[in-house]
Design a protein around this nucleic acid. Structure first.
Lengths: 206, 206
DNA sequence: CTTGATTTACGTTTCAGTCAAGTAATCTAA
DNA sequence: TTAGATTACTTGACTGAAACGTAAATCAAG
């Protein structure tokens, strides 16, 4: 028997096994190139070079550019999402809890060049709409849900006004990242704090 | 004298004059293709076809793709900016004035595919930063200034609270367009109204 | 020595940018 | 009125570079 410690392990397939590190290097390279060069300027050759692999190796594992990028976005966002522990709301002032939650939503938390990446995804929405779908499903939606759950929880605790349009407030809060970047070319470190400060009178239970 | 009614007109240069309609058709085609295909997927051949012109004609007037796109963005944003008349603040409730102002900022007011266009510009920011510069200077900055002037004016009239962080409020208001699009894939018609409603308690003079 | 992973080398396509030849429009001068 | 000069536009073709995707050769692991 070639089974390992887990009992129902498959027998190792014949032939040379795949280098287990390659997938990770390639996925990382894809995300980096996508953020810097954008989808259509990004080339398989560059990705292969970044990953320290040759081009056909990539074609062996993924059918083409599209699927490669989809896989990379999917993996990257899943990982990032899994790395976010829930936030503790007890014992901190409500305004600080909202600030902390918004700070966690910053596009800069994941990739440094995340805004360029978002731009690439947006630019591709007529041509490769799957990118936006993945982006929405694995990046935007979980973050927004998290923010909305926090607001809802604070609302239940009577820390926020009861007639709050939570959906709309969340859109306002999240949107300021994009507006800040588009206006100034960067996302300021104190943006989340300033945004919540400015918005606070509209949401706090008086 | 070949001078026209305006006295100091230049003498017409010799040779066949340029077709005056071509520039316009080409600029329009560039904006359209940029919004749909993005910068690097967009081809001169497609633009020429859309404009009903041959490729060498484009190269006769613009040195290359870059300059072509820069010229098109520049012209397009200048025009759109010039088409916005000032807003009358008298005789309307302050909240409606802010709503009206924000509605005018909608990316959908200009090109229909404006978000794709913005995505293309963002995606290109490492490779062709001039695009973002033009975008900031001729599209974002004037709009934001307009919004901030309106808020300031209302503040002077004691319709908004005096300790307002106008800059931050403007970022919040403008950003909701991007957040809405990224979340849902469209910009809802009532977004401006809902955003101002949600934000109103934070900014109105009580 | 068989099998599959990886690489080196190749063919094809696409597109930017250029060029040459022919046609069209406008001005000037005879 | 007409002939020439000058510039704009079209058609068609060409070059070179970039990049996709593949086929043949090579390499590790049983």
């Amino acid at each position: 028997m070639t089974e390992g410690v887990e009992g129902t392990r498959q027998a190792r397939p014949p032939g040379r096994p795949r280098d287990p590190g390659i997938e990770d290097m390639v996925m990382r390279a894809v995300i980096g190139r996508l953020a810097v060069d954008g989808y259509s300027r990004m080339t398989i050759a560059d990705i292969a070079a970044d990953a320290g692999v040759s081009r056909p190796t990539i074609y062996r594992r993924w059918p083409g550019k599209r699927d490669l990028v989809i896989a990379a976005l999917d993996l990257s966002f899943r990982r990032e999402q899994a790395s976010l522990p829930p936030l503790d709301l007890d014992g901190v002032p409500a305004i600080d809890a909202v600030k902390a939650e918004l700070r966690r939503l910053s596009p800069n938390n994941g990739e440094r060049r995340a805004v360029g990446l978002i731009g690439s995804v947006l630019a591709e929405d007529t041509h490769t709409p799957e990118l936006i779908h993945i982006f929405r499903e694995h990046a935007i939606e979980p973050r927004m849900r998290r923010l909305m759950e926090t607001l809802q929880e604070l609302q239940w605790r009577r820390r926020l006004r009861s007639d709050l349009d939570i959906d709309q407030i969340s859109t306002l809060l999240y949107g300021c990242y994009f507006a800040d970047y588009i206006r100034t070319g960067e996302i300021h470190a104190d943006l989340a704090d300033r945004a919540v400060d400015a918005l606070w009178p509209a949401i706090s239970a008086e």
